[in-house]
Nucleic acid binder design. Sequence first.
RNA 1: UCCAGCUUAGCUCAGUCGGUAGAGCAGGCGGCUGUUAACCGCCGGGUCGCUGGUUCGAGUCCAGCAGCUGGAGCCA
Length: 463
Amino acid sequence: MQIHRVQELFKQSPVGQRVSVCGWVRTRRDAKNNFSFLEINDGSCLKNLQVIADGTLENYETDVKKLGTGSSVRVEGLVVASQGKEQAIEIKAERVHVYGFAPEDFPLQKKRHGFDYLRTIGHLRPRTNTFGAVTRIRHTLAMAVHDFFRSRGFFYVHTPIITANDAEGAGEMFQVTTLDLDKLPRTPEGKIDYARDFFGRRTSLTVSGQLEGETYAMALGNIYTFGPTFRAENSNTTRHLAEFWMIEPEMAFADLDHNAFVAEEFLKHVIRAVLEQNQEDLNLLDSFVQKGLKESLQNIVAGPFARMTYTEAIEVLEKSGQKFEYPAKWGSSLQTEHERYLTEVHLKKPVILTDYPKDFTAFYMRLNDDKKTVRNMDVLVPQIGEIIGGSQREERLDVLLERMQEVGLKPEDYEFYIDLRKYGTAPHAGFGLGFERLVLLCTGMGNIRDVIPFPRTPGHCEF
RNA sequence: UCCAGCUUAGCUCAGUCGGUAGAGCAGGCGGCUGUUAACCGCCGGGUCGCUGGUUCGAGUCCAGCAGCUGGAGCCA
């Protein structure tokens, strides 16, 4: 017999049809008249399916009356109009097969749990309403990312996970090695002999696919990557993970204005997808996790983002009359408190900040004519802060080499990157977006560890 | 890494002025009901994070340690 998904049953309301549903019992309520209500969740949607199981079932006393929260069942029966108010349809069971009981020590109760506790049972937390909703929204976002780029002619490029370059110094890297750490081979000078390592050289997990992505943009035009990245930073915050997924488009013959345009369109596209496809899940999160979530998402897609240069932003902050712990002044980086003031108080919407001082930006960002700032951008959104960082890349070989020297990078370590400027260079631009931060924004969840199925943070690697 | 806070039953939490621990939920038993985070009654359930100190007496005050959470920095 075909297995029906709960979401489909609610959508189609096939009253009178005989169906089969598999899922997990959320709660059982026994009625006196020798029957029980079972609420079954199969993960297809937030709502549970109500099942009427009565004493005529051969295993009513032996099995059905013992079904506790967490048990897994297959229910076969007739779809009928419900007499109750909370649902339009329910199943009158003709057969209830128990795959597995969940004993009384099942850690999830029918009540709400704290997210910290749920984090300690990461294998069971997907069975809660909130994590089901977050997982479905994460899925919608991932699909919408591919949908956005495909519909605009971008090619999906798989950049390497294991890398031999240290990208841009974007962060501390996890080393990849097969050397025996107890018996490290040494060179005559006493250094570790990486020539004898698996790849014959020192390698790490990637911190960004951007540099490799640029090589394909300089051939295929518009490309994007969407894959895992790794940073060994000792960051203990609600916005950082050691393993996270990043989306990095790169566009040939594009300048920063176009880059900003695409970034804004992109954010609006994926948020619209969630607003359209996850209404029930959003309602749950809006009422139990973050009040006003839907409204703030609608606010993001409603109007144009604000645009401002770094220099203008500093002026706004200086004139704000606001007392900051760190006063804003030209030449120093924007603090979290500054970003929050701009998006949440001053503008009350997302803002794209551009043209930061070169001193605290990456070497590959295109130098402006003032020689003091670069053509970069940060997209800041209320609550989350920086969600996108990007730039027009430095396509002029001589300027790039000068910048590398300035920040102490050796050209021989970036030969492939320099070749792109040497042979048929072209203006190009791109940005990077932390996928989990996007999920945070769209779910209203407060901690990034709760929007990725298996979070990795300093001192924590379960499963 | 720095700063602050928290740690009491399986879970969520209360615990006053320092006087040897309480509720709800979950679990068991019974009742009631087309119920819907069902409801009512009864029962079982505790190394109060760990170590030490102050005190006649510490869940409560002090110190150290551990874990967790939040904020900051680094960033996506």
